[in-house]
């Protein structure tokens, strides 16, 4: 039986302020972030600009700065911040009893893209 949530291991495997990667066979690689404020996020590991590996960027607050051209990407919804435009799909994530779970359908399906206009909902 396939559960809805995929257990990808303990929170301690990702140092706070960094990210680690999770390749998906036949799909897109995922970057799982652990912020300095102890939140966890999962995004596809590619910047909407030139596909830079976001997992290798500097994490500050809930933002990652892409290592290739310094685009700032919100970890919360994958959107490019500031004057840049673009959005990277995210993967719903939950932490339970010290373990990280990703929504299986999004892992296999290449993530979920935030709606164009969600300012009011945010």
């Amino acid at each position: 039986m396939i559960g809805d949530w995929l257990d990808i291991g303990p929170i301690s495997q990702i140092e706070a302020g960094t990210a680690r990667t999770l390749p998906v066979e036949g799909g897109e690689e995922i970057a799982v972030f652990h912020t300095m404020r102890n939140e966890f996020f999962a995004l596809l590991n590619k910047c909407p600009h030139k596909q830079g590996p976001l997992s290798q960027g500097i994490v500050h607050g809930d933002v990652v700065t892409c290592p290739l051209h310094n685009w700032n990407i919100s970890l919360r919804n994958g959107k490019a911040l500031g004057d840049d435009e673009g959005c990277v799909p995210t993967i719903p994530l939950k932490v339970d009893a010290g373990r990280i779970y990703l929504l299986r359908s999004a892992v296999v399906g290449g993530g979920v893209t935030a709606p164009e206009q969600n300012r009011a909902a945010a």
């Binding site: 495997q13 066979e25 799909g27 892992v107």
Partner: peptide, 15 residues
């Protein structure tokens, strides 16, 4: 080691 290794690799069941 954590900086160089993936957490894991997902191999979807369908595959």
């Amino acid at each position: 080691k954590d900086l160089h290794a993936h957490i894991a690799t997902v191999r979807p069941l369908e595959m």
